[in-house]
């Protein structure tokens, strides 16, 4: 592999080649059986479990020297986890990194799918804390594996039933269970259910790595991903009452940001790259930081 990296003492992308081969075999199997959790021999990584060790191992195994890597955490390119993982691969693989979604060939993510539509040339790698969607109702792993094998998925609806019984609607807003290609029920990792429709029929390959749980699963490109629901309580994504306060985007996932101790708050794009690109293109929201545009805000939609 490339020896131009200053850290020549690391193998390319940190993992040794045999480990990468082992992980690639697991990935190929996962792609062959969409939604099925493939066990793999998860390695110790130089970061604690829960910090994305599964995603990192998947990324390390698929990364080539020409790849361009983007890492996001909760939609943001500049949070600790994203910066650390990006730095890790810059150092151990010497690959180019970017924050621009469309420039990336591999995107490792925790909790979000970028707002910019993905393409056939991209791979989305999810960091997964708990791969088993039935874990909380059926703690026995041997039993849940059998249930997957026999397609006994009544339990997933028990969970949704409980939601409606307790909250009047399906209150699960993240890690919302999906059925992949009409066969396996899958936990889409703790992404907000807002992103579930983006998984369906996506042109990009989606890979899921759970380091602590030692499981890899996948959704191949153009695969049907259906969110579970009831006939009389159909699946619906979150909606937001106002557009992004910075870039005025609508129909995107927003984060709530508390502004002061008097109840002031704003809603801004969770996908920071998307927000920045829109602002660079001249879109301005209610609280956009550009002082020359303040009258925009006063003319804005809010009373």
């Amino acid at each position: 592999m490339t020896a131009t990296s200053e850290t020549w003492s690391y193998n390319f992308a940190y993992l040794d080649e045999q480990t990468k081969r082992m992980i690639r075999r697991a990935i190929l199997k996962a792609i062959a059986i969409p939604g099925y959790q493939v066990p793999f021999a998860s390695r110790e990584m130089p970061m604690p479990y829960g910090w994305g060790t599964g995603g990192v191992q998947v990324t390390a195994s698929i990364l080539g020297p020409d790849d361009v890597l983007k890492v996001i955490d909760q939609g943001s390119d500049d949070t600790t986890n994203a910066v650390a993982i990006r730095g890790f691969f810059e150092k151990t693989a010497g690959v180019a990194t970017t924050t621009a979604t469309e420039e990336a060939s591999v995107i490792q993510t925790r909790h979000r799918i970028p707002e910019t539509p993905l393409s056939e040339t991209q791979v989305l790698v999810y960091q997964v804390p708990i791969p088993e969607p039935m874990r909380y109702l059926e703690p026995r792993e041997a039993e849940t594996r059998k249930m997957h094998a026999l397609q006994e998925y009544g339990l997933m609806h028990v969970k949704l039933y409980e939601d409606i019984a307790r909250h009047g609607h399906i209150a699960t807003t993240y890690a919302y269970p999906v059925k992949v290609s009409g066969r396996y029920v899958m936990d889409p990792s703790p992404t907000p259910k807002f992103d579930n429709p983006k998984m369906d029929n996506s042109p990009a390959l989606q890979l899921f790595g759970a380091g602590r749980e030692k499981r890899i699963y996948a959704v191949p490109p153009f695969t049907q991903v259906t969110s579970l629901d009831f006939e009389d309580h159909p699946f619906a994504v979150q909606t937001f009452e106002e557009p992004c306060a910075l870039c005025a985007a609508e129909g995107v996932f927003l984060d709530e940001v508390v502004l002061d101790d008097r109840g002031g708050r704003m809603f801004v794009c969770s996908d920071t790259n998307h927000c920045e690109e829109r602002r660079a293109a001249g879109h301005r929201g209610r609280l956009s930081g550009d002082p020359t545009k303040t009258e925009d805000a006063s003319q804005g939609e809010r009373p």
Binding site: L137, H157, Y161, I164
Partner: peptide, 23 residues
């Protein structure tokens, strides 16, 4: 299932055989 409601306990078998109407 001690941690789910009485209704879901009774309904589980129905959901397991494909009932998909909450009401």
């Amino acid at each position: 299932r001690m941690t789910v409601s009485a209704g879901a306990n009774v309904g589980e078998r129905l959901m397991a055989v494909g009932a998909r109407n909450y009401g």
